[in-house]
Design a protein around this nucleic acid. Structure first.
Lengths: 186, 186
DNA sequence: CGTCTATTTGAATGTACTCAAAAGCGGTGG
DNA sequence: CCACCGCTTTTGAGTACATTCAAATAGACG
């Protein structure tokens, strides 16, 4: 995690120590929930190992996957976290996971103690924002087929790690249709 | 703009002066481009008055609207701006506009001179990110019809100000189909 | 080997798109 | 003041992409 952060801002040993003191490392088993819909999302998690999905249940009763997270990614219901309001999403482990977590109050303290990190998180979010905007674009301008192939290119690891029906959900198509896409010319 | 910023961070008079010195106010006529696809997006713009669209031309040759911006919103090709790489999008005025603009170098200086603004922009981007994620969700879980009515609720002003075919583009549907949605039970 | 879950296949249906043409609407000039 | 032009919106018929539901098949795990 330090390696990762130091790509964006350089920390002194002291700052790194403060940083480390705010995070707690926690293990989760496959299937466990890190965030549950309706609860306030109390912490932001950096994935040290494992794989998770964020999803919500639509009015239709169906599960819609918002995003996946693997090693080196952050996960949370950010909307809930920043406003400290009940979460729209669930975050659940698809594998056994090890997460480095920081809660709301400690993060606010951290911003005060190490203002550089304000910059770090700004940059991280900017990138996430741009990526999400690209996803909006793809959803609007590409067919299901094209979206799927783009997904494969961009996240070849996920293609392996995650069941197909979840990828279908992430892409916004049914599992049956994804299966048909795959069978016709892969 | 100061009012707007002071909702998130409180600035001293001195800091406000520095802030003001970095921004340039510029007027654009209806139809003018603030950012052009292929150019590097050099500045971020805060809309003082007017209305703009960000869009790109898909492989199919069709215009896809990424977002609108009205008074009190920020606009830019953020991906291009933060990486200083050629823009994917165009940003064009739908009305005569007055924008407060800051370019890349000046913003970086500003972050150094008034670190509080790092916080301000982090918060802004966080909110934009959450909003964009909601849009992804809506696109995945709602029908065209539902998306349209949600859009009306959320942006009643835009509904008035922007031609219908652009709203259709923003929603990811054809203008013909939007017309049909409207005619059946409005 | 049996059970549970995930994937595939097929037929019928629905939602949204394409293309073409008509109607509405605002501005401009005769 | 009306006629015409360009641009936006509407309407309709035919089509394509994606969904639903049901059933069959394949894989993983005990």
């Amino acid at each position: 995690m330090f390696d990762y952060i130091s790509r964006y801002v350089s920390l002194t040993t002291e700052e790194a120590t403060i940083l480390a003191s705010k995070f707690k490392v926690r293990k989760y088993l496959k299937g466990q929930f890190v965030v549950q819909n309706g609860d306030v999302c109390r912490s932001e998690s950096f994935v040290l190992s494992g794989c998770l999905k964020s999803f919500f249940i639509g009015d239709d009763g169906q599960e819609h996957i918002v995003m996946f997270a693997v090693e080196g990614w952050w996960t949370a219901d950010l909307g809930s976290f920043i406003m400290q309001t009940p979460a729209d999403y669930n975050v659940q482990c698809l594998e056994n996971c090890i997460l480095a977590q920081i809660n709301y109050e400690e993060l606010e303290q951290l911003y005060l103690q190490v203002p550089k990190l304000e910059r770090f998180f700004r940059i991280i979010i900017q990138k996430a924002y741009v990526a999400t905007q690209k996803r909006v674009i793809n959803n609007l301008s590409l067919t299901a087929r094209e979206r799927y192939f783009k997904f494969r290119e961009e996240y070849p690891e996920l293609e392996q790690r995650v069941p197909q029906y979840m990828i279908a959900s992430y892409l916004g198509i049914t599992k049956e249709f994804l299966s048909k896409i795959r069978s016709s010319s892969n």
